[in-house]
Design a protein around this nucleic acid. Structure first.
Lengths: 198, 198, 198, 198
DNA sequence: AATGAATGAGGATTCATTCAT
DNA sequence: GATGAATGAATCCTCATTCAT
């Protein structure tokens, strides 16, 4: 998840992510990060300027990683529908494979601890843009109703996120079938014709 | 929002909510709560057993309040569709009218700082149950596809929440038209027939 | 020395003064101040906003105290000469009786750790002003040569201070006789009708 | 100022002097010295055994330098008076030309951070001894009153130092005239046949 | 009930110093 | 000789909580 960082930074970021999910930001002290990561406090400050810096770097790194994961295997040759299914399946897979990163973003995207600059930088590298383009294409092709593409993406992302939240938190089971059903429901929510136009 | 509490408790809960939204849990110290609420630290401890207690009380109070707000004006005599529209409009109105409470729940529903007991208690008084019943009714009437009602509620809640998030955070405008359009899209996502069957 | 402060502040200021003289500012940690003064760290911060604040308060308090001590018993009815002797004797007595306060001012009057504001505030309450007036009177009476009064005060203060420094540090003995001799020398330095006796 | 040291040591000593005057000993960290001097921390420790060592070396170097500067051009052939004027003029010039060195000695001559050994070593190479000899000569020649020579030197040094302090700190102007006047006053202070003009 | 002074463990961060390269 | 990454004890300061009034 943090390949672009050096060994020390990776250890710190990974440890921090685990601790924050486990214990809250509050309870994630620098000394705990140091102990769990095997990097001395002094040396952490050699690579990060502050605790805030670590958290913000973490945020940016995860959003970037998520963006790459979600837009993976979206081939231009494929139909809009195929890419639509692929993208949302990727989101679900992401949430299941990397639940910590997923939870972290969910919890802290609203937090004042994450600077606007980090949010902006993350936003640019995220998956929102590419998906909005896909939706725009769908509108142009007459597949989708006339609604602001970013609005639709936001709506659908919410649906998927809450399914994953339920899965991670309230123990709703999220089988492949349910996933498939949900993605279809999302499609139907905004498609002009009901059902996959197969 | 905190009518069932006495004056002192109200002051503490309201102040705490503002501070947490403004500054993060971390930066919301008891002395700051004391100063901003006009209640001395000593007296806060007369009414709450700890800081954790305040936050958990806050969580429960807000979820309860939200539940009442969302299930407001859902008359048994009305059609499923009417009640569906009413409920989601209520959610949107809630998010717009009480953004702090809304944000707080979004940020902290995942947090280990909120005890499972609080989450459970809140869940029981929340709107999830009533809405799930409504959806079940819709399935029985053959209006909705055959999908786990709680799953559908979760999904739709996610859509609305993310619209509100976009509205509160990324400055997507959320007009009445867009709200109406979204609720319709939610209906279409799971209805057997496309469109309001008017 | 710190009568105008409350018990806690007095304990902190006194302890800090002793420690700084004994060990240097560097080595005077808050926890040491806490331990030696019997005031907990937390409570120190209830009365002082920072370590800097303590040191600056100390500076101001001592300069004020010194000012009062030095200008003690300067009766308007007395001759200029009598007041001159009284004042400088007071300085010598001060240095001998309160060597720590004296050393502290000597060491830190140049330090960037003491804010300009503290220096200014201290200056106004110090003894410089009253002594300068006395010297001005002496000039007007034709007793002293025509030299800037503040300059003369500064010069004489330096003489006395260095005598005290020698006394406190290099073990030069400073008997009453020597003190008397020095004050006389100071008088002669600026009294009229002198010159290189060529 | 540090000609007897090698390039690296010179860089370190010069940088340290500047930093201490600017920021206090406390705030003068090894890493700051390293950064500002262009010498790596590791290498600093190759030339100095500790931070204390740097400061003590600095102290000794400056006192030696000052001693040489002050006793410059004191020719045995000249009269006592001429040498007297020369010496004190040198002190004033020193304070004006090398204010940092001057301030440093003033601030730290009292400090426990400077070892007694450094003070002793510095004392031997300083200007105190030569000046005391000069004053002794003056006493023998019947020019000066019968007072301990080292006492007189100390006194006069104090006068000059405080004039310079006023100049450096409180913005008293120190013109050549004032300097001349002050040196004359010093002479008069201890030259024979004076008394309270009663 | 109400106050706010007092506590001291624990927080983030810095720093002199070491050591592998 | 020279570098700067690494160490971890020590620094200043904050904080939830208690308690005398």
């Amino acid at each position: 998840m943090f390949e672009r960082y050096n060994k020390v930074q990776q250890a710190v970021l990974e440890t921090t992510l685990h601790l924050i999910i486990d214990k809250e930001l509050q309870a994630t002290s620098m000394s705990l990060i140091a102990k769990n990561s095997g990097v001395s406090t002094g040396n952490i400050y050699h690579y990060f300027s502050s605790k805030e810096d670590i958290i913000n770097e973490l945020y940016k790194a995860i959003v970037l990683f998520n963006g790459e994961f979600v837009t993976r295997d979206l081939h231009d040759g494929d139909t809009v529908q195929a890419r639509f299914r692929r993208a949302w399946k990727n989101v679900i897979e992401l949430g299941k494979k990397y639940p910590n990163g997923f939870r972290f973003i969910e919890q802290y995207s609203f937090s004042p601890y994450i600077h606007e600059a980090s949010k902006l930088e993350a936003y640019k590298g995220g998956w929102c843009g590419p998906l909005a383009s896909l939706y725009e294409e769908a509108v142009h092709q007459g597949l989708f109703i006339d609604m602001e593409p970013r609005m639709m993406v936001q709506m659908h992302y919410g649906s998927i996120v809450y399914l994953l939240k339920g899965h991670l938190q309230q123990h709703m089971e999220l089988t492949d079938n349910v996933a498939e059903q949900t993605i279809l429901a999302c499609w139907n929510a905004v498609s002009k014709e009901k059902g996959w136009n197969e």
